[in-house]
């Protein structure tokens, strides 16, 4: 209150129709254990729902998980929905079983980082931290 207490806030959600939330939950818990405040929105969310929640929660970053293979459509759709919701500055990160060639395309579409099952958790956490901090100063 009197002293400044800024916490990194992230939204973790899962767009699309498949019902697996293990990846999203795992990331949410790892971020919590690293001191983040994680707004968890659960599975089967539309990009618009995720964007609206991210705006209301004033998060510093959005983390998406996808196992359905629909990431090429859904991840960029969240980036677009955020821009439409007046929050183009909130960075989007994503994870899933994503082939190398897709990663290049997704980054071109504005996803700042992509993680695959092989990415060490520490790398993921520091990527989130960087994204949050860049946003707060930028």
């Amino acid at each position: 209150m009197t002293e400044k207490i800024k916490k990194n806030r992230v939204l973790v959600g899962k767009p699309g129709l498949d019902g697996h939330d293990r990846g999203a939950k795992f990331i949410a818990q790892a971020l919590r254990d690293a001191g983040f405040e994680v707004v968890y929105t659960g599975i089967r969310r539309s990009p618009e729902e995720i964007a609206a929640a991210a705006v209301q929660e004033d998060v510093d970053a959005v983390g998406l998980s996808s196992l359905s293979g629909a990431h090429m459509r859904l991840f960029p759709a969240v980036v677009e929905a955020l821009a439409k919701a007046g929050a183009p500055d909130i960075p989007v990160l994503g994870g899933g079983v994503i082939p190398e060639e897709d990663i290049i395309e997704l980054k071109a579409a504005g996803i700042v980082e992509i993680f695959t099952p092989g990415t060490p958790i520490d790398t993921i956490i520091s990527a989130y931290r960087d994204a949050c901090e860049k946003k707060s100063t930028g």
Binding site: Q29, L31, R32, G35, V39, Y40, T41
Partner: peptide
């Protein structure tokens, strides 16, 4: 209390 982090899940 350990990490200072939190999972905020009521939105689900």
């Amino acid at each position: 209390p350990i990490s200072g982090g939190a999972i905020l899940g009521d939105r689900i």
